[in-house]
Design a protein around this nucleic acid. Structure first.
Length: 127
DNA sequence: GCAATGACGCTCT
DNA sequence: CAGAGCGCCATTG
């Protein structure tokens, strides 16, 4: 069966679960990045950062999902345990103009992306 | 059912 | 800033 434990409070399948993450990742613009944690939150599954990684790991090679635009909360490319696609990830990002520090970090304040509806509501002073 | 396993993250020192 | 420690939670064996 394709069912997943109900602990996440919403009836779903593994497929749709992962799809909700892919939908967010597809919205990350070229040359920008988002964190695993934020992708999880935006997808509606807070605290599921690890599972964003699982979803991306399960992507087919030709999938139309810009998986390389997802990095960890420190702005680093997370290492894989099985493959070495993290090397490709850096190449793809640099090809989009994303800069890395000498320590291999990306400045999230500069390249980090969040959807408009996620941004803090800019409160206009009432006077 | 239970322990181990992650492309994670936050706090504290 | 670097580490350690702990929290997190679906999946896997």
């Amino acid at each position: 069966m394709d069912l997943v434990s109900p602990s996440a409070a919403r009836p779903r399948t593994v497929r749709s679960f992962h799809e909700s993450f892919y939908a967010v990742v597809r919205r990350i613009p070229r040359g920008r990045v988002a964190t695993y944690g934020d992708v999880a939150i935006i997808a509606g599954y807070p605290r599921h950062a690890r599972h964003v990684g699982v979803a991306l790991r399960n992507l087919r090679e030709n999938a139309a999902v810009p998986w390389h635009r997802v990095v960890n909360a420190r702005g680093e490319i997370s290492l894989r345990s099985r493959s070495d696609s993290h090397e490709l990830q850096r190449i793809l990002l640099e090809a989009e103009g994303v800069e890395f520090s000498l320590e291999g970090r990306i400045d999230l304040r500069r390249y980090g992306w969040r959807p408009p509806e996620y941004r803090r509501p800019t409160m206009r002073p009432p006077w």
